[in-house]
Nucleic acid binder design. Structure first.
Length: 715
RNA sequence: GCGCGCAUAGCUCAGCUGGUAGAGCGUCCGCUUGACGUGCGGAAGGUUCCCAGGUUCGAACCCUGGUGCGCGCACCA
């Protein structure tokens, strides 16, 4: 006993974790009320950051807490293939060796991506274990594993049957660098100071920020109440264009045109601007595409092949020569930027797959309005509703190779050269149709596109639990049987814990897709943790060099200290500043817990402790017990309300300042000075009792040190 | 432009259902050779919780307006 070291050694944590895992502690017991959480699957893009640390610390604290309360806890781990992000990274890596994806071909490239994936998956798992995440590893899932691919295909087929997925040509956000469409949510906007060009279109002048798109103009639009232009509405105006040739355009009237902006007249280029596209649809204007997928001018003529910015300069110069450029003014522009590649988004008309959101978004709003799904903090609801109100249909196809292949099949013969860009409708089926229903003879070609990463993420809460349930009546393997019961037992899940930054990407889509496919909500509660910032309140980013590596911190201070430093002082939805000093505070706390336990254990010695007689307690002890009772009562209430930071601080304060500073000192004096062996034993037993009761509460937050104490000191 | 959030000790932040302000770090003083790579005790420090009104017996906490900062959303070409 006397050899208990004075410091807790966190180097043994991995072994300790292994022993818990091997003992099956993290598996659901199947007894008691089910409590389920599916972790937000980290991307296989690389290593984990502090945001992950926070999310998994919260997950694990809650999981351990619920387990302690006797719930049947399922904590299901997984990882996400992150289609666009990972493909981009692998491409960059290959480019360093001078290899291009297009030269390799799809199959070879995918082999490379799987190599990458297979390298990172075990690393991610090891990291999560290092955090202490008490997840059931036998249920680990990856969004590209076989089961997930089946679920995704099935989801696509069913949503298509329901009329919720359709294919069509619409103006989409095109990333010219990654050569793929991206969704509205993958586009960021950058404020830049650009130029506004005032250009003469005969009798009407127009102000535009993108003169190069004038090659694709199909109308001029004005506001119907604008007296200046009234006489032209419905007419065609004739004007000299950038090459001095005469050109005609119709003038239309639309209320969306702001008479105050620029000249009050707008050139309409449906193929290259979202607003113009809407106008084009509304007024049945032709759409003339003049920019191609590489961001180059595709229109024939002197500008053909030029990049848009080059074409802009040349066109402006030509206009000026002809006296058609009135002036150039400065203007603040919101430039659309691809979140992933940083490229300037080119709005282009393109044939893509979409998910219809009109019906789904109403149901999704209702689920939260009715209280079926609760958000913490509650104010996130407003942001959620606002997003749903403004939601357009979701472009789900991506021109990538890494991801879930779209289960759409085309007839080779109908499309002429086996080109997918056929006008014929594809067949939607989970498997390649054995016989082509169109020509009756060809081997059908699968759509080359893959699905947006968030499609598979959207069905994650149930695809991980065995959805779709096997239709066959025959008994499957035990594996299938157990998965099937997972869905019935653990779905809808109890809690989703994630960052508010993926409210739209993920949370909202899970709700919509779950309602469409399972007719149920995916989870009952959602807890949004806040962003982890550096000690200056800045976002952590590699370029700023202010990133702290959670695993390095764990190596240095131990997992408990890092977990508590992330949870302590964190409240739902609010950003928190983080620094190594905070970890130090909790490392010291761990040391304090260790030594208080050490003293308690040593002072008890080998003497057998009898049951404490509560009647013989003195006033100080009785008071202490009352306060401990209150602490125990508050703890589950705070955690149930996801006030983890408050719950932890309460334990910290009580343990350190009430228990260690006051009570131990008080009993120590008695133990050292009292001549009554009974009284001494009472002090020893009392300390042991209150220590154990506190350790029980602390184990949710600091499992490693608490379990080590229990194993090495308490018997 | 619209929406959301935050403003409390030098710094970072707690403060549950309203009752006369707390922690950690930092600073200062003292103590401690036996649980504690330290710890303990104490002190200073908030004109009382951004400003101005209001509700209330009573507000940091509720309401209104304002200021500053952060975040999200947005088709002004």
């Amino acid at each position: 006993m006397n050899e208990i070291p004075t410091r807790y050694d966190h180097a043994k944590e991995p072994d300790l974790y292994k022993s818990w895992e091997e003992a099956g502690e993290f598996k659901p017991t199947g007894n008691g009320e089910p409590f389920s959480m599916i972790i937000p699957p980290p991307n296989v893009t690389g290593d984990l950051h502090l945001g992950h640390g926070l999310t998994y610390a919260v997950h694990d604290t809650i999981a351990r807490h619920q387990r302690r309360l006797g719930k049947d806890v399922l904590l299901l781990p997984g990882a996400d293939h992150a289609a666009i992000a990972v493909q981009h990274l692998v491409e960059k890596k290959l480019q360093k060796d001078g290899v291009r994806r297009t030269e390799m071909g799809r199959e070879k490239f995918l082999e490379e991506v799987w190599k990458w994936t297979n390298y990172y998956l075990p690393r991610i798992q090891a990291s999560l274990r290092r955090f202490g995440l008490s997840a059931d590893w036998s249920r680990f899932r990856f969004t590209m594993d076989e089961q997930s691919q089946k679920a995704v295909t099935e989801a696509f087929v069913r949503l298509h049957e329901q009329g919720l997925i359709y294919q069509g040509t619409y103006l989409i956000n095109w990333d010219p660098k990654l050569q793929t469409a991206v969704s509205d949510d993958e586009v960021n906007y950058q404020q830049i100071t650009g130029k506004l060009y005032w250009i003469k279109y005969g009798p009407i002048s127009v102000a535009t920020t993108r003169p190069e798109t004038k090659l694709g103009d199909t109308a001029i639009a004005v506001n119907p109440i604008d007296q200046r232009y009234k006489k032209y509405v419905g007419q065609e105006i004739e004007f000299k264009n950038e090459q001095g040739a005469m050109q005609k355009l119709p003038v239309i009237a639309d209320e969306s045109v702001d008479p105050e902006f620029g000249t009050g007249a707008l050139k309409v280029t449906p193929a290259h601007d979202p607003l113009d596209w809407e106008l084009g649809q509304k007024h049945k204007l032709p759409s003339k595409q003049v920019i191609d997928q590489f961001g180059k001018i595709s229109a024939e003529g002197p500008y053909a092949g030029l990049k848009t910015l080059e074409a802009r300069e040349k066109i402006v110069a030509d206009l000026e020569k002809l006296g058609l450029l009135e002036k150039v003014t400065e203007h603040n522009i919101r430039q659309p930027i691809s979140e992933r590649s940083g490229a300037i988004i080119e709005p282009l008309p393109s044939k893509q797959w979409f998910m219809k959101t009109t019906a789904l978004k109403n149901e999704a709003a209702k689920a939260v309005q009715s209280g079926a799904i609760k958000f913490y903090p509650k104010n996130v609801e407003k942001i959620y509703f606002h997003w749903l109100e403004n939601l357009h249909d979701w472009c789900i196809s991506r021109q990538l190779w890494w991801g879930h292949h779209i289960p759409a099949w085309y007839c080779r013969n109908a499309s002429g050269k086996g080109q997918v860009a056929s006008s014929k409708e594809p067949v939607i089926a989970a498997q390649r149709p054995k016989k082509c229903p169109i020509c009756g003879e060809c081997e059908m070609v699968q759509d080359p596109d893959v699905l947006d990463t968030w499609f598979s993420a959207g069905i994650w809460p149930f695809s991980t639990l065995g959805w779709p349930l096997p239709r066959a009546k025959s008994r499957g393997s035990d594996d299938i049987a157990s998965q099937q019961s997972d869905f019935t037992r653990y779905f809808p899940t109890s809690l989703l814990e994630t960052g508010a930054d993926i409210l739209f990407f993920w949370v909202a889509r899970m709700i919509m897709m779950s309602q469409a496919l399972t007719k149920q909500i995916p989870f009952k509660e959602v807890y949004f943790h806040g962003l982890v910032l550096d000690d200056q309140g800045q976002k952590m980013s590699k370029s700023k060099g202010n990133v702290l590596d959670p695993l390095a911190l764990i190596d240095k201070y131990g997992a408990d200290a890092v977990r508590m430093s992330l949870i302590g002082g964190n409240s739902a939805g609010l950003p928190q500043r983080f620094s190594e000093q905070k970890v130090l505070k909790y490392r010291n706390f761990v040391t304090k817990i260790w030594n208080a336990a050490r003293f308690t254990a040593l002072s008890a010695g080998n003497s057998k402790l009898e049951t404490l007689n509560s009647k013989s307690l003195d006033e100080t002890e009785k008071k202490f017990i009352k306060r401990l009772d209150a602490l125990e009562k508050d703890n589950p209430r705070l955690i149930a309300g996801y006030k983890l930071g408050v719950a932890l601080e309460a334990l910290y304060e009580f343990f350190w300042h009430d228990f260690a500073d006051q009570l131990i000192e008080y009993e120590k004096k008695i133990i050292q000075e009292s001549t009554d062996p009974g009284r001494v034993r009472q002090s020893q037993e009392f300390l042991m009792l209150v220590l154990k009761r506190q350790l029980t509460l602390l184990e949710d937050f600091a499992p490693f040190v608490v379990r080590t104490i229990k194993k090495e000191m308490l018997h």
